[in-house]
């Protein structure tokens, strides 16, 4: 069993001391931790998974106000439970950098062996991450990069540019050389570097087959904003052939807008890879024909790498002795043909 449990029990006592209401909520939260994603995490066939030296890992991520972000924490916790030599301390979700810094400071005080950190703001968390590194703690940076190479031992990243390339390449394949196809794009928060990277990858890939983005709007990763942006886009573009939506969470709103407008003349490609989008693709009864994965298992990978690093092991399928400095995850396209491979690891939005 996981070593998290005795602490949980004490925690329950603590909650009770504050308010009965808290207890109920705490129980709900904890109960849902070992959710559906646990089955998705595969095991490698080496002795790396054998129990070793005990590793204490601190984990901190932004508030789970988005399906993808919720899945990050869930899959990290699920991953940690698979190893009886990991004790995971979860300082759960906050969008307050002041508080997240304090969480990391607490991990430093606790002298944890490693910290897996998905910062709310990479730059703002750099200083405290460096402090942790200076204190001899292995820091794994997930998804949002620090602005100093000294602040993390290893960084696990999704491939935002790659997402755009994958989506663009899929569109080119479908267009089969027809240069008159109309392409639309619904981006995420426009000022974020990740959105800019995705759009650039998309545009670069389209250029190779002579297409371009004809209509582009930006939403804000929420269902509400997706509905709003898509309604406007559909008004602006009477005929579309391909629509790429950056994010499947906002995609729920996008699909609602498409349904309201009674439009079905185009093929829609999603982004990030939520489970309900993959089920739609499998069912093949909507405009949604494909999605591009942005893995929500990054933090789970971070947990695995942290354990390897603390135990002094190397990645089994690399000749290299040390764990790499940076791991960039691939951004595959999911279609009806391969959806069964990815559906088990997809996140519920």
């Amino acid at each position: 069993m996981s070593t998290i449990h005795p602490r949980r029990r004490r925690a329950f006592a603590l909650v009770g001391a504050f308010a009965a209401a808290t207890l109920v909520l705490g129980a709900c939260t904890n109960g849902s931790d070992d959710g559906d994603t646990s089955s998705a995490i595969g095991k490698s066939n080496t002795d790396n998974d054998k129990s070793g030296k005990k590793v204490v890992i601190g984990f901190s991520a932004p508030a789970a106000d988005h399906g993808w972000m919720g899945s990050i924490t869930k899959s990290a916790v699920a991953q940690a439970k698979k190893y009886d030599d990991i004790e995971l301390k979860v300082a759960e979700g906050t969008n307050d950098v002041n508080l997240q810094i304090s969480q990391v400071e607490t991990f430093i005080n606790d002298k944890v062996d490693a910290i897996v950190l998905l910062p709310f703001d990479g730059a703002a968390m750099t200083a405290v991450a460096r402090k942790a590194m200076d204190a001899g703690i292995v820091v794994i940076n997930v998804d949002r990069e620090f602005d100093s190479p000294f602040a993390a031992r290893t960084t696990v990243l999704g491939d935002n540019y790659g997402m755009g390339v994958s989506a663009g390449t899929y569109v080119c394949d479908q267009a089969k050389g027809d240069k008159n196809k109309v392409v639309a794009e619904i981006a995420g928060i426009d000022s974020l570097p990740l959105t800019q990277d995705r759009s650039k990858g998309f545009a670069d890939a389209l250029k190779k087959c002579g297409l371009k983005v004809n209509n582009r709007v930006a939403a804000e990763f929420t269902v509400e904003s997706g509905e709003k942006a898509a309604s406007n886009l559909l008004q602006a573009a009477p005929k579309i052939d391909y629509l790429w939506n950056h994010d499947d969470d906002q995609g729920v709103g996008v699909l609602a807008a498409i349904k309201n407008a009674n439009r079905d003349e185009f093929v829609m490609i999603g982004g990030a890879g939520s489970a309900n989008v993959m089920r739609d693709i499998k069912a093949d009864n909507t405009v949604l024909k494909a999605t591009v994965i942005y893995p929500s298992t990054q933090a789970a990978d971070g947990i695995k790498l942290a354990r390897l690093l603390v135990q002094g092991k190397s990645m089994s399928d690399l000749a290299e002795i040390e764990v790499p400095r940076e791991v960039k995850l691939s951004a595959p396209v999911v279609t009806k043909d391969n959806v069964d491979t990815y559906l088990p690891s997809a996140f519920e939005s």
């Binding site: 909650v15 308010a19 301390k89």
Partner: peptide
């Protein structure tokens, strides 16, 4: 709450 691995949600209730 942080030291005890408790979620911010229950913390907010408290």
């Amino acid at each position: 709450f942080t030291l005890n691995n408790l979620s911010t949600s229950s913390q907010n209730v408290a």
